[in-house]
Design a protein around this nucleic acid. Structure first.
Length: 423
RNA sequence: GGAGAAUUGUCCGAGUGGCUUAAGGAGCACGCUUGGAAAGCGUGUAUACGGGCAACCGUAUCGAGGGUUCGAAUCCCUCAUUCUCCUCCA
């Protein structure tokens, strides 16, 4: 959610910035009109309430003195119904204001390249050597199926398409990877580990920005006001929902492993094979709560934390700064980490690190008290560190050998009980 | 799932329709006192929204949302959470 006062005072600036993100300017004109209307009604209503409070005191006084107060009571009866009428109108307008305001994306940070989509994204840096194979590299779904460590057919049989079973050393590899990731973040990067709820209520999903606009992307539990989390960003960020933190407790870092559930409505036909786009996948998430003035430093550090995982795993990747049009709803600035996928001869997203500034904090009411006693919204950041399934895919493909076996990256060998390859 | 009790400010806690602008206490901050500290005394101590350059003023908030009333922390309804007992369960 954007600051309504900012929209009020810097209207044209906000409007043109949001237009770079594909927002229709007319919506903002309407919002401005509603906001003015709203403030007028608030003043009317509050003035009448003051009158009612004052006269009620007088009535109480008279009653105590055993005097007659019928006239005052009669006139307050009228004021009461006036207040009710105005408040009803106000409620209606506030609903409309919230309807528009909660659907507006965050303002883009000035450093973003301006553009409609991923075509305008800017590559920041590359790391690692893209492997040269003396043979035709196979896609991970063929390698995984042949090695009997991934079973997509049975996943589809028991659930539906886009679900998978990991088997044997495949399951162990997944577990090795996420344990390695969590251990690295908690012991080298200063994060506190959480195991969060995997279902969240509507308020939490509103807080991080999935609701009300992106309901079709998630799985909701029939008969319960709960949704399967599409990312543990939801329970991690909402951990401090409605709380006022102390400045000395900032920055605060959380990490968690969780499954993520996504309906993938609208992605029919894309990545239909393999581990890249499933309805359920494991992800190690990083979330930070930061003072506003430090949040962009924290974003760089968080991105580096995610990169450290790829580097230790020896997976080549590049860092991409998303354009205004490609940046997600809640984010002011996002770096994507894209890992090399040999069989597709391209880089594919494996992490996304964002600073949402106060956008989520305002929705979830996460604030902090400064040294001087003043209260302000924190900045929240989130990033994948990393998507575990896609990491498995990247390892299978980048570490494949001519005979179809997979070499295990050195850092994972201890987590694999000494296993150095899968064959 | 069934029965009962509870939810008040930073914390504890009083408060069954109007002298409650939420008593009292603790904590915290500042001041007085002191050689210094403790004790004592005094003052202050929430959040949101609206108005105002500001000082400040107004409105709302006693778990949440509705309702009754001129007026609700207080009465009524719905819901959430916590605790106790039963049931079930890993």
């Amino acid at each position: 959610m954007l600051d309504i006062k900012l929209i009020r005072t810097h209207f044209d600036e906000v409007k043109s910035k949001l237009e770079t993100r594909g927002v229709n300017g007319e919506e903002l004109d309407r919002l401005k009109e509603l906001d003015e209307n709203r403030r007028e009604l608030i003043q009317k209503s509050e003035q009448l309430k003051k009158e009612r409070n004052d006269v009620s005191d007088q009535i109480a006084q008279k009653k105590r003195n055993k005097e007659n107060a019928d006239d005052a009571i009669a006139s307050m009866k009228k004021v009461g119904s006036e207040i009710k009428a105005i408040d009803n109108q106000l409620e209606d307008i506030e609903e409309q204001v919230k309807g528009i305001a909660s659907g507006l994306p965050n303002l883009p940070h000035p450093s973003l390249p301006i553009g409609e989509d991923e075509e305008s994204n800017e590559e920041i840096r590359r790391w690692g050597e893209v492997p040269e194979f003396a043979f035709e590299p196979k896609p991970h779904w063929d390698l995984g199926t042949d090695l009997n460590i991934l079973d997509f057919e049975r996943g589809a049989k028991v659930a539906r398409s886009r679900f998978v079973y990991y088997r044997g050393l495949g399951a162990r590899l997944e577990r090795a990877i996420y344990n390695f990731m969590l251990d690295t973040h908690i012991s080298e990067h200063g994060y506190e580990e959480l195991i969060p709820p995997y279902l969240a209520n509507d308020e939490a999903l509103f807080g991080t920005g999935q609701f009300p606009k992106f309901k079709e992307d998630v799985f909701q539990v029939d008969g319960h006001p709960l949704t399967l989390i599409p990312t543990s960003e939801v329970p991690l960020t909402n951990f401090f929902k409605d709380e006022i933190l102390d400045e000395k407790d900032l920055p605060k870092y959380f990490t968690a492993l969780s499954p993520s559930f996504r309906s993938e409505a609208g992605s029919a036909g894309r990545d239909t094979r393999g581990l890249i786009r499933l309805h359920q996948f494991n992800k190690v998430e990083m979330v930070k709560f930061s003072k506003p003035e430090e949040s962009y430093d924290e974003l760089e550090k968080m991105t580096n934390n995610a990169e450290a995982i790829l580097q230790k795993l020896g997976l080549p990747y590049r860092v991409v700064l998303l354009s205004t049009g490609d940046t997600g709803f809640a984010a002011a600035k996002t770096y994507d980490l894209e890992v090399w996928i040999p069989a597709q001869n391209t880089y594919r997203e494996i992490s996304s690190c964002s600073n949402t500034e106060a956008f989520q904090a305002r929705r979830a009411m996460i604030r902090y008290r400064k040294e001087d006693g003043k209260i302000d919204y924190v900045h929240t950041l989130n990033g994948s560190g990393l998507a575990v399934g896609r990491t498995v895919a990247a390892i299978i493909e980048n570490y494949q050998q001519e005979d179809g076996s997979i070499k295990i990256p050195d850092v994972l060998v201890p987590y694999m009980g000494g296993v150095t390859e899968i064959r």
